[in-house]
């Protein structure tokens, strides 16, 4: 029975207290130096929350996200630059936590893809225009309904003047 219940449980955003520690050790305390705090926040936005997957740790209410926010602040205060602070997290949780996928062999297609699509689409369009352009056919086309309307308006305008 429990299984049926669990299966049909509708999960929206895992703010649910299913497996969240009750022990709140620390709250988000911003760093005193606003420049350091801004750097920490920028890093928070680049890291994916592991509990509420698909939110950044900046946007997540999960306890682990808060722990990681605090950890990033600690690394910044300890003198890490942004890259080192991010690397600290990646060494523990892997590339998966990076919201911006790193450019490497496996992601080449991902990054080239949009450019490829655009070139392909333009190529298809150009070929299509070339193939169908036939000056003779264009000349004997009857007026479209839009052109009819415009013609009528033009005539009406002239009549008024």
């Amino acid at each position: 029975m429990l299984k049926v219940f669990l299966r049909s449980l509708f999960v929206v955003l895992c703010l649910a207290g299913l497996s969240e520690p009750a022990l709140a050790v620390a709250v988000d305390q911003p760093l005193d130096d606003p420049r350091q705090e801004a750097r920490a926040r920028a890093i928070h936005k680049q890291l994916r929350c592991l509990v509420c997957q698909n939110q950044s740790i900046e946007d997540s209410n999960a306890a682990l996200a808060r722990d990681l926010r605090i950890l990033v602040r600690e690394r910044i205060t300890a003198g890490d630059n942004d890259e080192a602070a991010i690397r600290y997290i990646v060494e523990r949780y892997g590339d998966w936590v990076l919201l911006q996928p790193p450019v490497k062999a496996g992601t080449a297609l991902l990054w080239i893809g949009p450019v490829l699509f655009l070139i392909l689409a333009i190529a298809v369009m150009v070929v299509w225009y070339r193939r169908r352009s036939s000056p003779v056919a264009g000349a004997i086309e009857p007026l479209s309904s839009e052109e009819q309307d415009r013609l009528k308006n033009l005539l009406a305008d002239r009549d008024q003047q």
């Binding site: 022990l23 509990v51 892997g94």
Partner: peptide
């Protein structure tokens, strides 16, 4: 207590 060692182990759930 603080979950810091858990993070070092890559614990997320």
């Amino acid at each position: 207590l603080k979950g810091r060692v858990g993070i070092d182990w890559g614990v997320y759930g």
